[in-house]
């Protein structure tokens, strides 16, 4: 879960968590590509209209076990969630929602193959629990981790068509573009996600969304990939102001500062990174003895 903080995942996991999202309009399914789609792409295309049609459907209240499972996951108590999902699936082997939750737990634990199977099963089954659109989001996120960029984009775009402006999905699309080396597209997606999070934050009385730190970091990485070091520096500072516990962002910030030639700030960023990542190995860090001297690192 390096790229995506747990908060970013959990915030979309639970039903009802996105009530302040933009008004839902089930958009038309994406146009089929000109060539024959792969079986998985076809699965997305076939499932999308069914899930779109289910947007207004009323769903029964979750079982007691499912409610407890949702609570455990929202609290980040993954061990308890794993136990509860096992119990729920034992009691209700055909429970689509429990199966989906199991997929999310697989995903969060890094077992992407198992997660993928669960999400594909739900797409084949069709909408069967409240806010079924979430399956597309997690399927796309899972495919991204499995390196299937094209299919991940289809799933994430499908989710956006069901939940227009969803900032979590926009964030993942930003990550996808970033990982494909498409910095301009990544910037666009991250900026869209940022605007949407800010809009929601305003609607919620100014409380910043915990995912904002990751979006700023994504923006910083996109600026870095684009060669705009000042913008990368600013975005990473904003990210770290919101959440200073992100070791990966301190590391990225160190790289930016080094290239900007700000040796003292770079040493400080490295110190933070090392403090947060203690135990990685590689020997004692001695910033004052850094052999990489500044004159050649200012690549602007």
């Amino acid at each position: 879960m390096n790229w995506v903080g747990c908060a970013l995942v959990l915030s979309l996991l639970l039903p009802g968590c996105a009530k302040d999202a933009a008004p839902q309009k089930a958009a038309a399914p994406p146009q089929p590509p000109p060539s024959e789609p792969s079986p998985h792409a076809a699965l997305i295309q076939q499932a999308l209209p069914l899930f779109a049609a289910a947007a207004e459907r009323q769903w029964p209240a979750p079982t007691q076990g499912m409610a407890a499972l949702n609570l455990a996951m929202s609290q980040g108590r993954m061990q308890r969630a794993r136990k509860l999902v096992g119990q729920e699936l034992s009691l209700h082997p055909g429970s689509a929602e429990a199966s989906f939750a199991a997929g999310v737990l697989y995903f969060m634990g890094g077992a992407y193959g198992g997660a993928r199977q669960r999400f594909e099963r739900e797409l084949e089954r069709g909408p069967a629990f409240v806010e079924p659109h979430r399956v597309f989001h997690f399927y796309g996120a899972c495919l991204l981790r499995l390196g299937e960029g094209s299919l991940a984009r289809q799933a994430l775009v499908a989710h956006l068509s069901l939940r227009p402006g969803d900032p979590h999905t926009l964030y993942y699309l930003g990550q996808l573009a970033l990982q494909e080396g498409q910095a301009p597209q990544a910037l666009t997606r991250f900026q869209q996600a940022l605007l949407e999070f800010e809009r929601r934050s305003t609607a919620a009385g100014g409380q910043p969304d915990p995912s904002l730190a990751k979006v700023h970091a994504g923006l910083g990485n996109a600026h870095l990939q684009n060669g705009d070091l000042d913008a990368a520096d600013q975005a990473m500072r904003r990210s770290l102001a919101l959440d200073p516990s992100q070791a990966d962002v301190h590391y990225a910030h160190w790289r930016v500062l080094l290239r900007l030639g700000d040796r003292n700030a770079a040493a400080s960023a490295m110190e933070s990174f090392e403090r947060l990542k203690s135990g990685l190995g590689g020997g004692p860090l001695q910033p004052n003895q850094n052999p990489v001297t500044p004159p050649f690192v200012n690549h602007r």
Partner: peptide, 8 residues
């Protein structure tokens, strides 16, 4: 001397 971390 080991410079791996600082070298990136």
């Amino acid at each position: 001397e080991e410079v791996g971390v600082f070298s990136g």
